[in-house]
Design a protein around this nucleic acid. Structure first.
Lengths: 151, 151
DNA sequence: ATAACTCCTATTAAAATAGTAGTATATTTA
DNA sequence: TAAATATACTACTATTTTAATAGGAGTTAT
């Protein structure tokens, strides 16, 4: 599982993506309320994302956060990584949280290692082809679908 | 990430699978030493797997654990589940650790939910088609490959 | 009988996670 | 320039989970 901070980050950045035009910004408080994320926690998350260069901010009254890149270019895998969420199921196949298996004499000869690599690749494949823009598009489609179903 | 207990369980059951013929058994101490798993920890894990019906045991001197089913029929997904390892990346798409999103008004309209479902399906697809027998086969292939590479 | 096992309950240490508090600093606007 | 509204930053805390250990009771082969 990825930590809540990763999920909150995705939600918050999606909110920013929805107002992305000419670097339009939104305050922490607004995002927190809209996405129902604890305000102070979100503050910490956005600060981190800013230091990673994923977003930028404007201080002072009428300030807030905004995306640096186009929503098309921000992939879920990048957000998860920036917020410390591991995608792999075990450390010996993780790109960002790699740890050697103490009990495994030869990683390259381990069948489990090989399978877990495949799982990681499958997950990363999906997460790194899905952008914030895709998420928004998906939501629109889901909404239309549910509208049609009600008729 | 799945907990270490899940990885240990897979390793231990693979060891049992390797001696699976006519319900051949192995003691905790032997498995622990061979797979380099802390003995007392492994004891707890195997006990749980036994209570889940995944293995059986024989008490007393010359006793030990043995598989109840053929290694072909024991899938990695089942082992991970039995040992409490979540496969999904977020709780709202987890089969065994499902939790509603507090911040999500309608799960069915959530784009992230949809993507994470796809990731879960991709992971489960691999993990539930891979058996202990497959793991052993993979290891044999990897070994042969490395032997050939050395020539 | 005794050595070699599993069974079972309880406990503990460490780490990770989620979230909070409070103050300093920057910016707009009236 | 003062007030209001934001972010920046540091530090802290509570809770939960994980990994692992301790120790004795019960079981069986020899």
């Amino acid at each position: 599982m990825i930590p809540k901070r990763s999920k909150y980050a995705i939600k918050a950045l999606t909110a920013l993506a929805k107002v992305y035009r000419d670097k339009q910004h939104m305050s922490i408080a607004t995002i927190a309320e809209q996405e129902r994320i604890p305000r102070k926690f979100l503050e910490a998350i956005l600060l981190q994302l800013r230091n990673e260069g994923m977003v930028n901010s404007k201080m002072g009254a009428n300030g807030g956060y905004f995306l640096v890149k186009h929503p098309d270019e921000i992939m879920l895998s990048a957000i998860i990584r920036s917020t410390g969420g591991p995608i792999a199921l075990i450390p010996c196949v993780s790109l960002n949280f790699y740890e050697e298996c103490v009990e495994c004499p030869h990683e390259d000869l381990c069948g489990l290692h090989e399978v877990m690599l495949e799982v990681r690749e499958a997950s990363i494949h999906i997460l790194s082809k899905t952008s914030l823009a895709d998420l928004i598009l998906r939501e629109k489609k889901l909404f239309r679908k549910s509208e049609n179903a009600r008729k």
